[in-house]
Design a protein around this nucleic acid. Structure first.
Length: 452
DNA sequence: TCTGGGGTCCTAGGACCC
DNA sequence: TCTGGGGTCCTAGGACCC
């Protein structure tokens, strides 16, 4: 086993990425793989994580066995059930996946000190300057050595956690990410310096991170289908499509993407090192059925305000801007926001949200979704049991810190909870796809939303 | 039975200040 | 009374990612 003991304690190497040393590591069908490590009988079977067919929801993750039938993540559960009626449908258990994600990061940290977590199932690892730290046969090039090390990493993740993963190694993050996608499943793809454009050229434009359906459609209208064609476009013709992001795209498709790893500890984004505040805290919930009852709607607003305020207190931040999100039955979505003095008090947040709601909801149509977001975050007192002025908050927060948010609910948010049942007889809280509400598979030791 | 939930970043118009 | 720009903040919406 390799163990990094070298001099690079933190931060990214100043060396230019003239050689492929940026690795993008991506877990294969991550949520499905975690479910399989916890239930071996799922191995080799068609598995869909996201909820039950019939629920309002989408496919969050799916195994390769169901992809054969055309199932894709983001597809509605109903549609997925039509395509793959024999698939095994599982609810999402975010807490459990988060625990496994941390364990993957711990394994990766044995291989390099410079790691940036990009999402729950994806991270970038910088190997610049690390070649000499690894034992290699005399005839191996540095590229071969790093590729071998990355294989060791994926083997360690598979061996210790039972999770398959893939990786791309390149001179920039974008190319590494594209390569990790091409390497799936269970592969490692090294892109030698200078071969980036060759790799990209035949790929459809959608393979490039940041080109979504809208940009792809605009490009298609201009006759651009592949990344090779995109690379042939002059810079100024791309600005119409990509705006401020044109430079990134242009450099990326020409193989000159960024290898900057950014500041350390991206996982804690409320404050960046300069003291600037970034990030947001939001919760939203789609009703099981479109809702018109003002009492239920207000209760949901209460619950959402409670939750986001609690998360803000837990993370020691206050928000200056509160945003209400509202989606009607016809999917028309609008938002209203207000900026005031910094707060993480749910009473304060709820007051603002109710005002925004009165301003926004001028029709009588039924409502599909409500959401509350806190942005413009700044420093606030860290959650503290004894020094906070609001005694109720602190006691409640203390219990929640130990047992999870749902261990304590304020009265207003709990009034209609029982009415939200899904007809299957399980315990249930707000919303359509709670983590512990639909099967007997809930794991109280790893799921922070499960009451003790 | 179409269309989840958590984010980040960008745009564009208007208010307001100098 | 008529008239500039530049800068910043606020608000609403939208693209994109996993």
């Amino acid at each position: 086993m390799f163990r990094y003991t070298g001099p690079l304690a933190s931060g990214s190497s100043p060396l230019p990425a003239a050689t492929p040393r940026i690795c993008c590591l991506d877990l294969d069908t991550f949520f499905v793989s975690v479910e399989r490590t916890l239930d071996a009988s799922l191995e080799g079977k068609p598995v869909i994580v996201g909820g039950r067919p019939g629920q309002r929801g989408v496919v969050t993750a799916c195994s390769y066995e169901v992809r054969e039938f055309g199932v894709r993540s983001g597809m509605s559960l109903t549609q997925a059930a039509q395509l793959a009626p024999r698939a095994i449908f599982l609810p999402v258990r975010h807490g459990t996946y988060g625990d496994y994600a941390k364990r993957v990061v711990h394994i990766a940290e044995r291989f390099s000190p410079v790691i940036r977590v990009a999402s729950i199932d994806e991270m970038f690892i910088d190997f610049r300057g690390s070649e000499r730290l690894y034992h290699a046969p005399d005839d191996a090039t540095d590229d071969e050595t790093i590729e071998r090390v990355v294989w060791q990493l994926t083997d360690a993740i598979a061996g210790e956690l039972g999770l398959p993963s893939s990786a791309g190694i390149a001179t920039s993050k974008v190319i590494a990410k594209v390569a990790s996608g091409l390497a799936k499943p269970r592969g490692v793809l090294m892109v030698p310096a200078g071969q980036e454009t060759e790799l990209l050229a035949p790929l459809p434009v959608r393979k490039f991170p940041g080109i979504g359906p809208v940009a792809a459609k605009k490009l298609e209208a201009a006759g651009i289908l592949t990344l090779g064609q995109l690379a042939d476009m002059p810079y100024n013709k791309l600005t119409h499509v990509f705006g401020a992001w044109t430079g990134n795209v242009y450099r990326g498709v020409h193989g000159h993407g960024s290898a900057d790893m950014g500041p350390a500890r991206r996982a804690f984004r409320e404050h960046d090192p300069s003291g600037e505040t970034v990030g947001s805290i939001s919760n939203e919930r789609t009703f099981r059925e479109d809702e018109g009852d003002p009492t239920v709607l207000d209760s949901m607003l209460c619950a959402l305000c409670e939750r986001v305020s609690w998360r803000a207190r837990k993370r020691g931040v206050k928000a200056r801007t509160v945003t209400l999100k509202l989606r009607y039955a016809d999917f028309v979505t609008l938002s209203r926001s207000k900026t005031t003095s910094p707060t993480h008090s749910e009473k304060h947040v709820l007051g603002i949200v109710r005002e925004l709601y009165r301003r926004a909801n001028t029709t009588t149509g039924k409502i599909r979704l409500l959401g509350v977001a806190l942005t413009n975050l700044g420093p606030g007192e860290q959650l503290n049991l004894f020094e906070n002025q609001d005694r109720l908050h602190t006691v409640v927060d203390h219990v929640r810190a130990r047992f999870g948010f749902d261990a304590v609910r304020l009265a207003a948010a709990s009034t209609r909870e029982v009415d939200q049942g899904n007809g299957h007889g399980e315990h249930r809280t707000w919303g359509g796809k709670g983590t512990h509400d639909t099967t007997t598979r809930a794991d109280p030791t790893t799921d922070p939303t499960t009451p003790p």
